[in-house]
Design a protein around this nucleic acid. Structure first.
Length: 377
DNA sequence: TTGTTTTGTCATGGA
DNA sequence: AGTCCATGACAAAAC
């Protein structure tokens, strides 16, 4: 399947791609599809800021709102599951904070074996709802991991998840596990370590990092949902700086949550920038190709012009030669003898008078004239 | 299966 | 100092 274009956020993609690059040369039907999808966006939000300003965000974080936002879209089943858990008085922030505290004993409860069904919250439509127990009791919290699809394929990681089994725990795993590139064996259970790993640069996890790039977005989507923010990734990306900062300020988000939101925004912005950049590059290439074409045409024109001029010059030279000999054939010296054109030349003085003179004199006079001209310059 | 193109991401530098 | 944007480079996905 196409892992980039799962059903979850496709509609909002249209807003991003469809409007920004209507003339994109390599536009493909799927982009058009996205545009068609847009009116049915799960949130129905065309202007995220307007939604934001009109809302009490604390309220927006509530289970009911999440349910409202997702209930009309079958593809949001995972979120509905979370909503069920939320109805039971779950406070995401509190739990999140608990997770951030070293030595929190919430972890072990997550690994309880009483879950009979496991599901993976991630995403992309292919997500898994796998029945049968594959719980890994020996894993620590981190090892349970928030790996989305892509990492799941490395090692089949699943999330505990019936109504007894806390969906909020799963949520927190999402919130906590930012280590896109870690395979489960690399994960360490403490939240602090997650934070550290999150901060590591790509070269420290080079082996894994590019493996996961294609699915970072879907992870972002999962985590955005886990944050209970009723904005799609695209909305997070496209809202104004002020709105974004206000959102960060108004909600008591943990450092981890803020970091995730900023990353989602950064990646989204950069994606758009890359698309614009590529479009510009393509246009630049097209323009240069056009320039080359025009210059080649111009070159051909100049070539023709040049050959035309050469022909004219030759004709004029021939005419001149003919006239020259014509003149000499009619000239006579003092004794009435014909003048030899090999010994004499026709000379035009600067005053405009024309006369014939011996060649050797003409040469010396020409030298003098040249000197005069150089001095004048 | 292999080669090419497209896409998302990160790092980096400039504004 | 922090933020945003543009772009080269890279790797995975798509073709």
């Amino acid at each position: 399947m196409n892992s980039h274009h799962g059903s979850f956020f496709g509609p909002s993609d249209a807003m991003l791609l469809g409007t920004d690059y209507p003339t994109q040369l390599n536009s493909k039907p799927r982009h058009l599809q996205r545009q068609e999808f847009f009116p049915q966006s799960s949130s129905g939000i065309t202007n995220p800021e307007s939604l934001f300003h009109g809302s009490n965000l604390t309220g927006l974080f509530s289970a009911a709102d999440i349910r409202n936002l997702t209930a009309h879209d079958d593809s949001f089943d995972e979120i509905k599951l979370m909503s069920l858990a939320l109805e039971e008085g779950f406070s995401p922030i509190e739990v999140s904070q608990m997770f951030e505290e070293p030595g929190s004993d919430l972890g072990p409860s997550l690994n309880s074996n009483h879950c009979t069904t496991s599901y993976s919250i991630c995403c992309e439509g292919s997500v898994g709802y796998s029945s049968g127990v594959k719980s890994a009791p020996s894993h620590g919290l981190g090892a349970v991991g928030g790996h989305c699809q892509e990492n799941i394929k490395h090692s089949h990681v699943e999330y505990p998840g019936d109504t007894e089994c806390s969906a909020e725990a799963t949520l927190q795993q999402f919130l906590q596990n930012h280590t896109y590139n870690q395979v489960p064996s690399q994960t360490v259970s403490t939240p602090q370590h997650h934070q550290q790993m999150w901060m590591k640069k790509s070269n420290e996890v080079k082996d894994g990092y590019h493996n996961s790039t294609a699915t970072n977005r879907s992870r972002d989507e999962c985590r955005a949902k886990a944050l209970r923010i009723p904005f799609s990734v695209d909305e997070i990306v496209s809202m104004s700086v002020d709105s974004f900062n206000a959102m960060l300020a108004k909600n008591q988000l943990t450092e981890t949550q803020v970091s995730l939101l900023r990353d989602i925004r950064r990646r989204g912005k950069n994606k758009v920038a890359a698309q614009k950049c590529r479009k510009r590059k393509l246009n630049a290439i097209l323009n240069l190709e056009e320039d080359v074409c025009n210059l080649q045409t111009q070159k051909e024109t100049l070539k023709k012009e040049h050959s035309q001029c050469s022909k004219s010059i030759n004709q004029i030279k021939q005419k001149l030669n003919y006239l020259y000999h014509e003149i000499f054939s009619k000239l006579r010296d003092d004794q009435g003898r014909p003048v030899n054109p090999c010994q004499y030349v026709i000379h035009c003085s600067s005053s405009g008078s024309v006369f014939i003179m011996p060649k050797h004199l003409a040469k010396s006079e020409q030298k003098q004239d040249n000197r005069k001209e150089q001095k004048q310059k």
